[in-house]
Amino acid sequence: MPPGGKLRYGAIMANFVLVPGARLGAWAWDDVVPRLRAAGHGAHPLTLSGLADKRGVPAGQRTHVQDIVDEVVRHDLRDVVLVGHSYAGIPVGQAAERIGDRLAHVVFVDSSVPADGEAFVSAWPDGGAEMRAVLAGNGGFWPPAPAAHFDGHGLTDEQIARIVAGSTPHPGATLTEPAVLTRPLGELPATYVLCLLADAEPADDVAKLLAGERWRLVEMDTGHWPMFSRPRELARILLEAAGD
């Protein structure tokens, strides 16, 4: 059996690398990971530098890309399904092209997608001016969101409390440093998960990618944090992306 692979009925199973969105850590995938492992796959939830249990580690956008690549290489993972939620779509999309033939698929969970030379904040209506002001006023960090931020996303009060309690300030350089891509993002084999309580239609950049042959759209009737609100359904979508 190849390192990092699992066998079931003679087939090599997928290795999911699960990257949480802004302010969150690997713990955000706690309700999804057991379902992936129960299906015989590897599941590797990842905390990005500067967040959760890695709080205090200096981090920029390139750091987060390297975090993901290092996780794949460290465990010698093959048949990798990279999963990025929200902000994490930016580093995940860049890491996907850097792991070469280790990659099987990418799943963008209601996420941003990278564009060469553009930062996470570039897509904001004001070009990121408001975010940069927030970062400047908070020591270079994006502060955790209050509980009210999560209203209307299909979350219980308990789930919201769990997210708020576990959130940590997000390092601002990861939001303002530009992405670097060496080939068109549309060449990646990808699934985009659109959470309908957050947005009824994909953003324009995502819609263009979905018009290509290698991307497909899956809709979820829930809010922006489906790993909390619909973990069973999200796990099923991830398994389908892996060909299960």
Results as ranks from 00 to 15, higher is better:
residue 60 G to R: 00
residue 197 L to K: 07
residue 76 D to K: 11
residue 201 E to W: 02
residue 49 S to A: 15
residue 77 L to V: 15
residue 176 T to Q: 00
residue 214 R to C: 00
residue 134 V to D: 00
residue 152 G to Q: 06
residue 199 D to S: 12
residue 151 D to S: 09
residue 197 L to I: 07
residue 213 E to V: 02
residue 236 R to N: 08
residue 244 D to Q: 10
residue 19 V to E: 10
residue 47 T to Y: 12
residue 192 Y to W: 07
residue 112 S to M: 13
residue 46 L to I: 12
residue 43 A to F: 15
residue 228 F to V: 05
residue 206 V to G: 12
residue 161 A to G: 15
residue 209 L to G: 11
residue 154 G to D: 09
residue 90 I to A: 01
residue 131 M to F: 03
residue 120 F to C: 02
residue 134 V to I: 15
residue 63 T to C: 00
residue 192 Y to Q: 04
residue 142 W to A: 11
residue 125 P to E: 10
residue 202 P to K: 10
residue 1 M to S: 13
residue 155 L to Y: 08
residue 236 R to H: 11
residue 3 P to W: 10
residue 210 L to K: 07
residue 186 G to Y: 00
residue 170 H to I: 13
residue 72 V to P: 01
residue 71 E to F: 02
residue 23 R to N: 13
residue 91 P to I: 07
residue 93 G to S: 01
residue 108 F to T: 11
residue 27 W to P: 04
residue 59 A to S: 06
residue 9 Y to C: 06
residue 226 P to G: 04
residue 76 D to T: 06
residue 58 P to R: 11
residue 81 V to N: 07
residue 213 E to A: 12
residue 209 L to Y: 08
residue 41 H to L: 12
residue 110 D to E: 13
residue 146 P to Q: 12
residue 40 G to V: 06
residue 214 R to F: 00
residue 102 R to M: 11
residue 32 V to G: 04
residue 164 V to P: 01
residue 204 D to L: 13
residue 135 L to R: 14
residue 241 A to P: 01
residue 100 G to N: 11
residue 20 P to V: 07
residue 214 R to Y: 00
residue 26 A to T: 06
residue 181 L to D: 00
residue 6 K to T: 05
residue 227 M to F: 14
residue 226 P to K: 08
residue 218 V to S: 09
residue 235 A to D: 02
residue 56 G to L: 03
residue 74 R to D: 15
residue 240 E to Y: 04
residue 184 P to V: 02
residue 144 P to H: 05
residue 162 R to Y: 04
residue 55 R to Y: 12
